[in-house]
Amino acid sequence: MTLFKQLLGNKKALVGLTILVAIILIAIFAPLLTEYSPTRRVGRPHQPPSWDHWLGTTRLGHDVFSRLVHGARVSLAVGFGAGLMITIVGTVLGIIAGYKGGVVDEVINFFTNMVLVVPNLPLLLVIAAFVGQAGPVVIALILGFTSWAWGVRVTRSETLSIRQRDYVKSAEMLGEPSWRIMALEIFPNLISIVGINFIGSVIFAVIAEATLGFLGLGDPNTVSWGIMLFNAQNASALSVGAWWDLLSPCFALALLGLGLALLNFAIDEVANPRLRTGGMLKSWSRMVLLGEGKL
């Protein structure tokens, strides 16, 4: 709770949170924000932005703004759903590996390192290609299944240092069962790492959904930012001059990524006051270089 309170006093967190909340609200109230259906033909094809169609229309005469706000629902749902799965798997495996040590640690660590050296996007592409036109739920499941390794690595290393602390040692002396130590002594002290992992995973999942959609691996009947990119690319939006068709989902993706990233830096700053100068950048570089932040 104190973490949350401190976050509200952090400028980066406020900006990031504002962006995120605004996008979430837009997604929730999407039907109220536009009179147009995202899947119906409501105008002439490829109309530039105007008072009637704020962000213009697609080649099929769909309203881009309507598709953008409705698409936010699917993109956010995939992002948060996959992010949650990635974080749960990563945190549980990381704590177990770090606390138990020995053979358990070696096995988990071996598989983690193995998943980390198999390039993520090519792996996603192969799986998605076999699944066929993957709907949002399937995409979220695939992402959760393939992208947990970074979280294990970071959580494990943090657990390794926490398990040496006095309060863990004394809990061990008192004979507390190990699940209790892991859940009640170690986990609460990992909350900032878990938070950073979660937000990083959400960014990753949103971008991955967009990428898979763009490459034609999504279900073309859903309305998401990735499918919007796919349709715009298929309609040769740029070469016929319909930039609004392609750039609208681009800016939405960039804005959401930025908001989440700011929130992530803020958590790190608040959690590690000592690192305030370099801390947020450090976590960011870890995230980016490990391929978790983006594709």
Binding site: I203, I207, A210, T211, F214, L229, L238, S239, G241, W243, L246, L247, C250, F251, L253, A254, G257, L258, A261, F265, L281, W284, V288, G293, K294, L295
Partner: peptide, 25 residues
């Protein structure tokens, strides 16, 4: 630091499409 954050928080797909739009088209 600021430029680094901005450059690395925007995904490749967005950067490439914007560059293509601005410098290509």
């Amino acid at each position: 630091s600021l430029v680094a954050i901005f450059s690395s928080s925007v995904p490749a797909i967005v950067v490439s499409l914007i560059l293509l739009f601005v410098f290509g088209y």
